[in-house]
Amino acid sequence: MTDTRTLSITVNGTQYTREIETRRTLADFLRLDLKLTGTHLGCEHGVCGACTVRVEGQAVRSCLMLAVQANGKSVATVEGLARDGNLSPLQNQFWEHHGLQCGFCTPGVLMTMEEFLEENPNPTEADVRDALSGNICRCTGYQSIVDAVLATAAQARGE
């Protein structure tokens, strides 16, 4: 017999209640149950960062967190960044600076950098590179990502 629990969770501002297996990860719940496939699964060991979402504002690896651990909490995924059909400032700068290529790592990088910029509105290039160190990208070489994050911070400061 499979152990299940009722999960009540808010994802990107929408409340969901589902009966789920207690062993289901948050990443699998988002992808399989809610069909929010922007959260990518890369390594499934918490190393690559592709599955990063924000739980109660904190960037977390959704492949390492059980969905039941998010019960009663608010989760933000990459699908929630755009508002009213408009890209977020960070997404727009990724577009402008060609901060993505294949796009596999991009959702996790965006979610990580959203939190980073909230905590550090005036980062240096070294700060951005340090914050990015938990997200693996095999395509871009990171410079375009760094440029996009720095441009977003400058734009937010009115520069």
Score class of each variant (00 low, 15 high):
residue 97 H to S: 01
residue 79 E to Y: 03
residue 49 G to W: 00
residue 49 G to C: 01
residue 82 A to C: 07
residue 73 K to E: 09
residue 86 N to Q: 13
residue 64 L to W: 00
residue 62 S to Y: 15
residue 90 L to Y: 10
residue 69 Q to Y: 10
residue 54 R to I: 06
residue 75 V to D: 11
residue 16 Y to V: 08
residue 71 N to F: 15
residue 45 H to R: 02
residue 75 V to C: 14
residue 55 V to E: 05
residue 59 A to F: 03
residue 23 R to N: 09
residue 63 C to G: 12
residue 28 D to C: 11
residue 76 A to Q: 12
residue 26 L to Y: 04
residue 52 T to I: 11
residue 69 Q to L: 09
residue 69 Q to D: 09
residue 21 E to W: 03
residue 80 G to A: 12
residue 78 V to W: 04
residue 46 G to D: 03
residue 93 Q to W: 00
residue 18 R to T: 02
residue 40 H to I: 03
residue 59 A to L: 04
residue 36 L to P: 10
residue 83 R to I: 15
residue 50 A to F: 15
residue 85 G to K: 09
residue 65 M to E: 09
residue 70 A to F: 05
residue 98 H to G: 15
residue 78 V to E: 09
residue 49 G to I: 00
residue 50 A to D: 10
residue 70 A to K: 07
residue 32 L to W: 11
residue 81 L to H: 09
residue 40 H to D: 03
residue 80 G to S: 07
residue 74 S to A: 04
residue 57 G to L: 03
residue 99 G to R: 07
residue 26 L to D: 06
residue 97 H to V: 10
residue 68 V to D: 04
residue 15 Q to D: 14
residue 43 C to G: 04
residue 33 D to V: 02
residue 67 A to Q: 07
residue 17 T to R: 12
residue 79 E to R: 06
residue 20 I to F: 01
residue 37 T to N: 03
residue 92 N to D: 10
residue 50 A to R: 03
residue 75 V to L: 11
residue 22 T to C: 02
residue 67 A to G: 02
residue 67 A to S: 07
residue 15 Q to R: 15
residue 42 G to W: 03
residue 82 A to G: 05
residue 58 Q to P: 02
residue 48 C to A: 01
residue 83 R to Q: 14
residue 38 G to C: 10
residue 86 N to C: 12
residue 24 R to S: 13
residue 62 S to A: 15
residue 64 L to N: 04
residue 48 C to F: 04
residue 25 T to Q: 13
residue 31 R to K: 07
residue 74 S to F: 00
residue 70 A to P: 01
residue 50 A to Q: 08
residue 77 T to R: 06
residue 92 N to R: 13
residue 33 D to S: 03
residue 79 E to P: 12
residue 54 R to C: 04
residue 57 G to D: 01
residue 37 T to H: 00
residue 64 L to H: 03
residue 51 C to Q: 09
residue 21 E to G: 02
residue 54 R to H: 06
residue 43 C to Q: 08
residue 53 V to D: 04
residue 29 F to P: 05
residue 71 N to E: 09
residue 98 H to F: 08
residue 25 T to M: 13
residue 84 D to V: 00
residue 35 K to Q: 13
residue 12 N to R: 09
residue 32 L to D: 13
residue 91 Q to D: 13
residue 96 E to T: 02
residue 92 N to T: 13
residue 91 Q to H: 01
residue 53 V to G: 01
residue 91 Q to K: 14
residue 61 R to Q: 12
residue 21 E to M: 00
residue 46 G to I: 01
residue 14 T to P: 14
residue 66 L to S: 08
residue 84 D to P: 14
residue 69 Q to C: 12
residue 32 L to N: 11
residue 75 V to S: 14
residue 81 L to Q: 12
residue 50 A to M: 06
residue 89 P to G: 10
residue 60 V to C: 12
residue 42 G to D: 01
residue 50 A to P: 08
residue 97 H to P: 00
